[in-house]
Write a protein that binds this DNA or RNA. Structure first.
Ligand SMILES: [Mn+2]
Ligand SMILES: [Mn+2]
Ligand SMILES: [Zn+2]
Ligand SMILES: [Zn+2]
Lengths: 142, 142
DNA sequence: CAACAGTTTAGAATTATTATAATGTAGATT
DNA sequence: AATCTACATTATAATAATTCTAAACTGTTG
């Protein structure tokens, strides 16, 4: 159990009241070594498992969207049926394993810098992200 | 009004019965010079406008998914609230205009070939696609 | 310790999508 | 051309995901 004061501070900084529920969600999401990807469903499970106090579904949605808007979470959409949130909010690329439905972060060295030749007048580029879909290589089956 | 025989043939080729509804949807989707992007909602509107014969909503969904499975359509998901289908089924990159919610195709020359250094053991790469999010450049507002 | 604005909550409402089951139809068989 | 059959379409119901509502609650300010 680490200090939640950090979360209380972080929440205050972006103008979110550090309520019990929000702090709890911060703990579940950010009190860990590595960032990770999850669906709303995953999160609801995590919360109900790792918790004494339950959080209503509406609050989970509200809070996730509040975090998203404030830049604490980032949405990664694979297709209309599979949408993930990412506690790694930096602009970064992903592998998506179509066998396991698992999202995997790339780091800087995994994909060379993307060079974009086209520019759209009056528009600036907000982000450039690559999705690499992979699946089991069954060429070695005779 | 061009020849629908093409569509009837195309449908047969992938094992889809060329029913009235499917042929009609082919017309609406493919009887044009350029490929385009649409939501289910867009498509339902297009069908009900450009048509004498109505198609039930369930059939629109079924047919879109049948086309998707057979490689006549491709899904492009921007976020959980915005999912598009693309009549351009090749692997290609997109710009997404966050002001207008418009998807724009890239062609080969717009983005340099993506170089991927990481490889995941036992997995092959199925596709590599880039999404470039753009928005109005308001730096020139004092 | 008020007072208030913002938050949570359960449950209802809405929306998007899929399932159901009756009816229709394309294409094959006589 | 009539019949057959598997597949497709349809209206509608059912489901699932998300958002809304309005009452109760809580963090913050003074
Ligand atoms: Mn969202
Ligand atoms: Mn789909
Ligand atoms: Zn990620
Ligand atoms: Zn496209």
């Amino acid at each position: 159990m680490k200090k939640n004061c950090n979360f209380i501070e972080k929440l205050r900084e972006v103008g979110l009241r550090p309520t019990k529920q929000r702090v709890k969600m911060c703990e579940v999401l950010y009190n860990r070594v590595k960032t990770f990807h999850f669906t709303i469903n995953d999160l609801v499970k995590m919360l109900s498992e790792e918790m004494n106090q339950k959080i209503s579904l509406a609050t989970v949605y509200n809070t996730v969207h509040a975090f998203e808007k404030k830049g604490y979470l980032k949405e990664i959409s694979i297709d209309s049926h599979r949408s993930y949130f990412d506690t790694n909010t930096s602009v970064h690329h992903h592998f998506f394993d179509e066998d396991t439905n698992e999202l995997i972060d790339c780091d800087e060295s995994d994909i060379d810098k993307i060079n974009i030749r086209k520019n759209i007048i009056g528009k600036k580029i907000n982000s450039v992200e690559v999705l690499v879909r992979v699946a089991s290589d069954n060429q070695n089956q005779k």
